[in-house]
């Protein structure tokens, strides 16, 4: 199970079915279509990616998810970010400078932090900020697509950024994805793992970044949306299936249950009767409005107790004879 959680989606992209087929051919089994949002959140929050997709010839075994990437700038109001996230399967944030990166790693609730690695950042990635994000279950994304198609400057920036991220995260909590703007920029999963190995991520870590970590991001995002505070999720309500027992057996069982029921009912009724009767008499008395003397109350209580006991003895005797 290999994951590619970043396939850019634009409306009227005729090359998309080809890209998805190519990814399937390369050995990926889950891909996420990525809708990139720049600037203000729209007034009406809705999923921009139609479901089902308007293409006929998609591979049937390829699982397709929907993801949104919000570009973080200083002026962005993030009040409705959660409402937006509910429309998609995954929410990713793209910080543009140090301040927004800190915001994304810390307080903002997201699943993936995706930096544009083809540009040069005028700051160092701090271990503290990135590990904070990883502790919160956010993943940091490495996109190799720009490095393959871009010029050598972009490739240089990509490699430098990736090595810095690997250092700052201690190669944990990373995911590798393509961000391929066409089928040519896609690479096989093992090729991407080798690339990351050349860049300084261990082979095992690279493999995890393609499989386990990506799955964690996806499942975690799903849990956040469907469960109670991301802790408890109802997978199956425990509805009992319709009883399928033979007719004869049910009759026998039914009789047995009837007998049992009588016994328990009788006892239960007695136990309760005593109390309820006592209560009832009290309430009645209080209802008449005349205050009772203590001796009177004691007398009445004793009388009722006696009555109840005699009744109970009778009923148990009946039950025994049964």
């Amino acid at each position: 199970m290999f994951y590619d959680l970043n396939v850019p989606w634009t409306a009227n992209d005729t090359g998309l079915p080809r890209t998805l087929n190519f990814l399937y051919e390369l050995g990926y089994s889950v891909v996420a279509l990525n809708y990139i949002l720049i600037g203000k959140l729209p007034n009406e929050l809705s999923c921009a990616i139609p479901n089902p997709l308007p293409y006929k010839d998609l591979p049937s075994k390829l699982e397709i998810r929907r993801r949104i990437t919000v570009t973080l700038t200083d002026s962005l109001q993030n009040a409705r970010l959660n409402a937006l996230a509910a429309q998609y399967d995954i929410l990713a944030l793209r910080p543009t400078d140090e301040k927004t990166l800190q915001l994304a790693c810390g307080s903002l609730d997201c699943d993936i932090i995706s930096l544009d690695l083809s540009q040069r950042f005028p700051f160092h990635f701090k271990i503290k900020t990135l590990t904070e994000a990883i502790k919160l279950g956010k993943k940091i994304e490495i996109c190799y697509g720009h490095g393959l198609l871009g010029d050598s400057q972009g490739r240089r920036n990509l490699i430098s950024n990736v090595t810095q991220i690997i250092r700052a995260t201690r190669s944990r909590g990373l995911i590798i994805s393509s961000e391929a703007k066409g089928a040519v920029a896609c690479r096989g999963p093992w090729d991407a793992i080798n690339l990351s190995a050349v860049w300084g991520l261990g082979q095992e870590r690279g493999y995890e970044a393609m499989t386990k970590e990506a799955r964690n991001a996806l499942v975690g995002a799903q849990l956040k949306r469907s469960s109670f505070r991301g802790v408890i999720n109802v997978v199956h309500g425990g509805e009992k299936p319709a009883p399928e027992v033979k007719a004869g057996a049910t009759e026998k069982k039914g009789e047995a249950q009837k007998q049992k029921g009588q016994m328990t009912n009788g006892q239960g009724a007695n136990g309760q009767k005593r109390k309820s009767d006592a209560l009832g008499s009290e309430t009645n008395d209080s209802g008449s409005g005349i205050p009772m003397s203590k001796t009177q109350m004691k007398k009445r209580a004793k009388k009722e107790k006696m009555e109840a006991e005699s009744k109970a003895a009778k009923s148990t005797g009946d039950a025994k004879s049964n």
Binding site: F22, L26, G147, L148, L149, A183, V184, A185, C186, R187, G188, W190, D191, A192, N194, L195, V198
Partner: peptide, 23 residues
Amino acid sequence: WAALSFMTSMPVKAGEVPCVFQV
């Protein structure tokens, strides 16, 4: 292997053919 991954096209007589090398 990395060099193979970074290849995006192959020269032919008239221009180039985009291709992907998968190990």
